[in-house]
Design a protein around this nucleic acid. Structure first.
Length: 359
DNA sequence: GCTGTTTACCACCTTACGTCA
DNA sequence: CATGACGTAAGGTGGTAAACA
């Protein structure tokens, strides 16, 4: 029995898989790869690996400035039918957070951009979330300052840093009623001190706020990859570094792929169980037929003219090979389902009085 | 037109940190 | 309070494509 499984092609729950399809090999058959160890290949690109390594930087957005003018687009972005300029796809999106008349509206939609109303965040996410959010934003601000990347760009953090500072302190002050508020403020101060001590040399773990994550999630639903303009706009809107937005999308794609792999694995497991059960049933059926053959050798004496060709695979249905029972009773020989079907039909046509009841 | 370099992005793996039970 | 599991932001590496000299 041959089986062909096509995973990911039959049901495409994620449209971005379509984009990735040309670069992937979709093997038919019972073959699955989990994880896989990135890239085998090697080859010509290895020659320039040193140059690549030299070009890599933790503050990549400083170096990768060419993306701003849109001259370079990656494969997925180039196939994107949408123009790089649009950010209108983003839900309830003010395009840029600039000191324009539209700015207040955008800030009202993004509570983390509001510096003077801690009650807004605390009412939206509870007292704990409001205070922690204040701390997180403060951390983000420091992380933005610890590197020189923010200054190199249009400095997405520069516009709101002082506001965030005020917000954080205000939250802590107004959070006198909030139990964790003081702790968070102290933690933020401790982090600030540690930042001063270590000059940003250590990696700081920043948790994005729920609103930031939700907004990124919405954007991810629209398109799972970003072009430079979208990345910059998102970073501005969310008051994050472009690198943070980029990393979030990378990790989000990885999570999606992992989940899809789990779904595929579950599906394969079910297929395997079904096939095992089918195989067990067929084996049992085969044993019964062999037992029948030994007890009633009449059907081995059928004339050669009764041999029938299987319509599907053009194999002989009569078991071919003469009347020698030893050859056909060889356990290692495959018995075509068509043969079994033939045998069963013969049994029905010529019932024997002493024939054991076949299942 | 071809080739090598640079730049930017990606997937993948890993690490470090925050949160929670 | 300590601890381990888990989720996730971020770093590192190798590969690839486009732009450019």
């Amino acid at each position: 029995m041959e089986l062909a499984l096509s995973l990911g092609d039959a049901s495409k729950p994620f449209k971005f898989l379509d984009k990735a399809a040309p670069t992937k090999d979709h093997h038919l058959g019972f073959c699955m790869g989990l994880g896989g160890g990135g890239g085998g290949g090697g080859g010509a690109a290895a020659a320039s690996s040193s140059a690549i390594a030299a070009s890599r930087s933790p503050h990549r957005e400083i170096i990768d400035r060419r993306g701003d003018d849109g001259r370079r687009m990656n494969a997925s972005a180039s196939t994107d039918p949408q123009t790089p300029l649009q950010l209108d796809l983003l839900p309830f999106s003010p395009v840029h957070r600039r000191p324009t008349a539209a700015a207040p509206a955008s800030e009202a939609r993004f509570p983390w951009l509001i510096a003077t109303d801690p009650a807004l965040t605390s009412s939206a996410h509870g007292a704990m979330d409001g205070s922690t959010q204040a701390r997180r934003l403060e951390v983000n601000r420091f992380s933005g300052e610890e590197g020189d990347d923010g200054a190199a760009l249009s400095s997405p953090n520069s516009g709101g840093s002082s506001l965030q500072m005020d917000f954080g302190v205000g939250s802590g002050g107004a959070g006198g009623a909030f139990g964790p508020g003081k702790r968070d403020l102290e933690a933020a101060e401790a982090e600030r001190a540690s930042d001063d001590d270590e000059n940003g040399s250590t990696r700081k773990k920043l948790r994005l706020s729920k609103d930031q994550s939700a907004f990124l999630e919405e954007s991810f639903k629209e398109h799972n990859t970003l072009n430079p303009k979208q990345k910059l706009a998102l970073a501005k809107q969310l008051n994050l570094r472009p690198r943070q937005v980029e990393v979030w999308f990378q990790n989000r794609r990885a999570r999606t792929k992992l989940k899809q792999t789990e779904v595929d694995c579950e599906y394969l497991k079910r297929c395997c169980e079904t096939l095992t059960e089918e195989n067990r049933r067929l084996q049992k059926e085969l044993q019964e037929l062999r037992a029948l053959k030994t007890s009633q050798p009449f059907y081995m004496q059928l004339p050669a003219t009764t041999l029938t060709m299987c319509p599907s695979c053009e194999r002989l249905g009569g078991g071919g090979g003469g009347s020698n029972g030893s050859s056909s009773s060889n356990g290692s020989r495959n018995v075509h389902p068509f043969v079994q079907q033939l045998h069963m039909s013969k049994q029905q046509q010529q019932p024997q009085p002493n024939q054991p009841a076949a299942s």
